[in-house]
Write a protein that binds this DNA or RNA. Sequence first.
DNA 1: GTCTATAACGCGATAGAC
DNA 2: GTCTATCGCGTTATAGAC
Lengths: 211, 211
Amino acid sequence: MAQKETVERILDAAEVLFAERGFAETSLRTITSAAGVNLAAVNYHFGSKKSLIQAVFVRFLDPLVDEIERQLNQLQAEKERLTVEDLLQVLTSSVYEIHGRGSNRATSFMRLLGLAYTQSQAHLRKFIGERYGNAFQHYASHLKPALPGATAADLFWHTHFALGTAIFTMSNFDALRAMSENDTGERTPVDFIVSRLTAFMAAGLHNAAHE
Amino acid sequence: MAQKETVERILDAAEVLFAERGFAETSLRTITSAAGVNLAAVNYHFGSKKSLIQAVFVRFLDPLVDEIERQLNQLQAEKERLTVEDLLQVLTSSVYEIHGRGSNRATSFMRLLGLAYTQSQAHLRKFIGERYGNAFQHYASHLKPALPGATAADLFWHTHFALGTAIFTMSNFDALRAMSENDTGERTPVDFIVSRLTAFMAAGLHNAAHE
DNA sequence: GTCTATAACGCGATAGAC
DNA sequence: GTCTATCGCGTTATAGAC
């Protein structure tokens, strides 16, 4: 019980701090002092900083991929062929379902996902690829029938274009919203941004089938 | 002459190494030893690591924004209203014009631009915003007449969606191409990716005007 | 203008007491 | 399981010789 509490406190603090600053820029000293635990606790419970980083990802990715899988199966039971819009909807509603609509954790999560791609943490990309590669392949396999004209190369590239759009937007979410507020004088609601984002991605993806 | 050579050697090495590993992960020791100069030379010529990072960006952004400006003016002399496709074409051909078609420097450049957004270097984003903000605004101002139905908020968000798509793709260019080669067994030509990318962005941007 | 040598510091990790 | 104390290393930056 005391153990579990310490582990959870470390994960909570690490998740927020990593999302704010990145991995290399967040020291174990910062994490442990924010969590109110001893510096040695991270190495005791997780073994290393790398393992801690991986544990942060497991804690939010495991439930998320389960939820995505669940929604995919449910939707497939209702209709035989899923549309691009269906598939994008599954992603957003899964994130909402797991982390709560508009919560800080949802944006933290997207920012971490962005960092996983862009920061040089080879161990992390390897780990994520090994643990979640199958789930990603399964999700991507639904895109093929949804975009009938597309070749395999089209699918690969357009999928990653869309992934990039989402990851970039979400991982710079706060900075972009601040810029937008500065430009237009209005604070854009999260739902507006998400719906525009998915529309942008859907338009780009559909473009794959038309060439 | 000896000085200029040292400065250039440092910039050359730093540009490549930053693009490969990121800023925090590249030490001055690595840069100076790759450049074949003394460790102290960076602090002597640039003052600090932060200033070196900024100098790397200035060296390739200054000529690029000049070239973009030149092409914009030239195109505007030929036709009164520029299309979205025109504007995207200006970007890609400017990069090609400055750094050479398919050169390593062009991909280095995009990767660095991606890092500028995603790595936590607040000083760099501030510096870029101050030095190139006007040029960005000028370029973006051409988008408004190209997308007649869009509101100011539409424009802001769709522009940054497209920017994100490009930055994410280019900054992960090598990794994505390796994945694609692994998937399909073929090495995708750069031109194919760039043309698909711009088509994806154009489709997403046009979508802004239709809602 | 460029070098060597080193200061001053923060980092991850661990040994050993409790 | 948690603590203190510390090791060993890598970092940026600088002082001073040449």
